[in-house]
Measured scan of single mutants.
Amino acid sequence: TQVHVDGVTYTFSNPEEAKKFADEMAKRKGGTWEIKDGHIHVE
């Protein structure tokens, strides 16, 4: 599962880990995350 944050791609083999990471990054940025085309995007 790929997580895209500010133009950087992080790859996780476990989708649950990817979601936890996205959640943390979104909180830090004061933003949100969503799943697009099977990838997670942090806004």
Rank of each mutant, 00 (worst) to 15 (best):
Glu16Val: 09
Asn14Val: 08
Ala18His: 00
Ala22Ile: 01
Asp23Ile: 13
Tyr10Cys: 05
Ile40Gly: 01
Arg28Val: 15
Asp23Trp: 06
Glu43Lys: 14
Val3Gln: 00
Phe12Ala: 00
Thr32Val: 10
Gln2Phe: 14
Val42Gln: 01
Gly7Cys: 08
Pro15Ser: 12
Ala26Pro: 01
Lys20Val: 12
His4Gly: 02
Val8Pro: 00
Lys29Arg: 08
Trp33Pro: 03
Glu24Tyr: 11
Ala22Asp: 01
Glu16His: 10
Arg28Tyr: 14
Gly38Tyr: 03
Ile35Ser: 05
Thr9Ser: 10
Gly31Asn: 03
Lys20Trp: 09
Lys29Val: 15
Gly31Ile: 03
Val8His: 12
Val8Tyr: 13
Ala26Gly: 03
Thr11Ser: 11
Glu24Asp: 11
Phe12Tyr: 04
Pro15Leu: 15
His41Phe: 15
Lys20Gly: 10
Tyr10Ser: 03
His4Lys: 06
Arg28Gln: 15
Glu17Val: 10
Glu34Ala: 11
Trp33Asp: 03
Glu24Gln: 07
Asp37Trp: 04
Arg28Asn: 15
Val5Glu: 02
Val3Thr: 00
Lys19Gly: 07
Trp33Gly: 03
Ala18Pro: 00
Lys29Ile: 15
Glu17Cys: 08
Phe21Ile: 01
Ile35Asn: 05
Lys27Pro: 03
Glu43His: 15
Trp33Tyr: 07
Arg28Glu: 15
Glu16Met: 09
Ile35Asp: 05
Glu43Leu: 15
Lys20Asp: 12
Asp37Phe: 05
Phe12Glu: 00
Asp6Lys: 06
Asp6Gly: 08
Glu34Ser: 11
Gln2Glu: 10
Ala22Gly: 03
Ile35Val: 11
Lys29Met: 15
Arg28Leu: 15
Gly38Leu: 04
Val42Asp: 02
Thr1Val: 13
Ala18Asp: 00
Val42Lys: 02
Val8Gln: 12
Asn14Ser: 11
Gly30Ser: 04
Glu34Pro: 02
Asp37Lys: 03
Asp37Thr: 03
Thr1Pro: 05
Pro15Trp: 15
Ile40Leu: 06
Lys29Thr: 15
Ala22Glu: 02
Gly30Met: 04
Asn14Ile: 08
Glu24Lys: 08
Thr32Lys: 12
Lys29Phe: 15
Phe12His: 01
Ile40Cys: 04
Gln2Lys: 13
Glu17Gln: 10
Gly38His: 05
Thr32Ile: 09
Asp6Ser: 08
Asn14Gly: 08
Gly30Ile: 01
Ala26Gln: 03
Thr9Met: 11
Trp33Arg: 00
Ile40Ser: 02
Glu17Asn: 09
Lys20Thr: 12
Ile40Lys: 01
Asn14Lys: 08
Val8Phe: 12
Val8Leu: 13
Gly31Phe: 05
Gly30Tyr: 04
Ala26Trp: 02
Thr32Ser: 12
His4Glu: 05
Ala18Gln: 00
Trp33Gln: 04
Lys29Gln: 13
Val8Asp: 11
Lys36Ser: 06
Met25Lys: 05
Thr1Gln: 06
Glu16Arg: 08
Ala22Asn: 01
His41Arg: 07
Lys20His: 11
Asp6Ala: 07
Glu43Phe: 15
Ala18Cys: 03
Ile40Phe: 13
Gly30Asn: 10
His39Arg: 04
Trp33Glu: 03
Ile35Glu: 12
Pro15Tyr: 15
Thr32Asp: 05
Ile40Asp: 02
Asn14Gln: 09
Gly7Leu: 05
Tyr10Glu: 01
His41Asp: 04
Met25Thr: 12
His41Gly: 03
Glu43Ser: 15
Glu34Leu: 13
His41Ala: 05
Gly30Leu: 04
Glu24Thr: 06
Ser13Ala: 13
Thr11Leu: 13
Asp37Ala: 06
His4Trp: 10
Ile40Arg: 00
His39Gly: 07
Arg28Ala: 15
Ile35Cys: 11
Ser13Tyr: 12
Phe21Glu: 01
Asp23Met: 10
Val3Trp: 01
His41Ile: 13
Lys19Thr: 12
Lys36Val: 12
Lys29Ala: 14
Trp33Ala: 05
Phe12Lys: 00
Val42His: 03
Trp33Met: 05
His39Glu: 11
Glu43Val: 15
Tyr10His: 08
Gln2Asn: 12
Ala26Arg: 02
Pro15Asn: 09
Phe21Val: 02
Met25Arg: 04
His39Thr: 10
Asp23His: 07
Gln2Ile: 13
Thr9Ala: 10
Phe12Ile: 02
Lys29Asp: 13
Val3Arg: 00
Lys27Trp: 13
Lys19Arg: 12
Arg28Lys: 15
Ile35Trp: 15
Ile40Val: 04
Tyr10Phe: 11
Asp23Gln: 11
Thr11Ile: 13
Asp37Gln: 05
Ser13Cys: 09
Val5Tyr: 07
Thr32Ala: 08
Lys27Phe: 14
Glu17Trp: 07
Thr1Ser: 06
Gly7Gln: 07
Thr1Ile: 13
Thr11Asn: 11
Lys27Thr: 12
Ser13Arg: 09
Thr11Lys: 09
Glu16Pro: 04
Gln2Val: 13
Asp23Val: 11
Val3Met: 01
Lys19Trp: 12
Met25Asp: 04
Glu16Leu: 09
Tyr10Ile: 06
Arg28Phe: 14
Ser13Ile: 11
Val3Ser: 00
Ala18Glu: 00
Asp37Met: 05
His39Asn: 08
Gly38Ile: 02
Ser13Pro: 11
Thr9Trp: 10
Val42Met: 06
Thr32Arg: 12
His4Met: 07
Thr9Glu: 07
Val5Thr: 05
Lys36Glu: 05
Thr1Glu: 04
Val8Glu: 13
Thr9Phe: 10
Gly7Arg: 06
Lys19Phe: 15
Lys29Pro: 10
Asp23Glu: 13
Lys20Met: 12
Asn14Phe: 07
Ile40Tyr: 14
Asp37Asn: 10
Val8Cys: 11
Val3Asn: 00
Thr1Phe: 11
Gly30Asp: 09
Val3Ile: 02
His4Ile: 09
Glu24Ala: 08
Glu16Ile: 09
Glu16Ala: 10
Ile35Tyr: 14
Asn14Asp: 14
Phe21Trp: 08
Tyr10Arg: 03
Met25Ser: 08
His39Cys: 09
Thr9Arg: 08
Glu43Asp: 11
Gly38Trp: 02
Ala26Asn: 03
Ala18Arg: 00
Lys36Leu: 09
Val8Arg: 11
Val42Leu: 08
Val42Ser: 02
Val5Pro: 00
Thr11Ala: 09
Glu24Pro: 00
Arg28Ser: 15
Lys29Trp: 15
Phe21Thr: 00
Glu17Gly: 06
Asp37Ser: 04
Asn14Trp: 07
Gln2Thr: 11
Arg28His: 14
Tyr10Trp: 10
His41Glu: 06
Asp23Gly: 07
His39Pro: 02
Asp6Ile: 03
Glu24Cys: 12
Thr1Asp: 03
Glu16Trp: 10
His4Phe: 11
Thr9Ile: 15
Asn14Cys: 13
Arg28Met: 15
Thr1Gly: 03
Ser13Val: 12
Ala26Cys: 06
Val8Ala: 11
Ser13His: 11
Thr1Lys: 04
Asn14Tyr: 07
Lys36Asp: 04
Asn14Arg: 07
Val5Arg: 01
Ser13Glu: 13
Asp6Glu: 09
Lys20Ile: 12
Ala26Lys: 02
Ala22Ser: 03
Ala26Thr: 09
His41Pro: 02
Gly30Ala: 04
Glu34Trp: 14
Glu43Met: 15
Lys20Asn: 11
Val8Met: 13
His39Ser: 10
Ile35His: 07
Val8Ser: 09
Phe21Met: 03
Glu16Asn: 10
Gly31His: 03
Val8Lys: 12
Ser13Met: 12
Asn14Glu: 11
Val42Phe: 10
Gly38Phe: 04
Glu24Phe: 09
Thr9Gln: 09
Lys20Ser: 12
Gly38Lys: 04
Met25Gln: 13
Ala22Phe: 01
Ile40Ala: 02
Gly7Phe: 06
Val5Ile: 10
Thr11Trp: 14
Glu43Asn: 14
Pro15Arg: 10
Phe21Arg: 01
Thr32Cys: 14
Tyr10Thr: 05
Val3His: 00
Gly31Thr: 09
Thr9Pro: 04
Thr32Tyr: 14
Ala18Val: 01
Glu24Gly: 05
Pro15Asp: 12
His41Gln: 07
Asp6Trp: 04
His4Val: 08
Ile35Met: 14
Thr1Asn: 06
Gln2Pro: 08
Thr11Gln: 10
Lys20Cys: 09
Asp37Leu: 04
Pro15Ile: 15
Glu34Arg: 09
Gly38Asp: 05
Asp6Arg: 04
Gln2Met: 14
Asp6His: 06
Thr9Asn: 05
His41Trp: 15
Ser13Trp: 12
Glu17Ile: 10
Val8Thr: 11
Lys20Glu: 13
Trp33Val: 13
Glu24His: 07
Pro15His: 13
Glu17Arg: 07
Glu24Ile: 08
Glu34Val: 15
Ala26Tyr: 03
Gln2Asp: 10
Lys20Phe: 10
His41Asn: 07
Arg28Ile: 15
Asn14Ala: 09
Lys27Asp: 14
Glu43Pro: 05
His41Leu: 09
Thr32His: 13
Ala26Ser: 06
Glu24Leu: 09
Gln2Tyr: 14
Asp23Tyr: 07
His41Val: 12
Ile40Glu: 02
Glu43Ile: 15
Gln2Leu: 13
Thr9His: 07
Thr32Leu: 07
Phe21Asn: 00
Gly31Ala: 06
Lys29Ser: 14
Glu17Ser: 10
Gly30His: 07
Trp33Thr: 06
Val42Ala: 02
Val5Lys: 01
His39Trp: 05
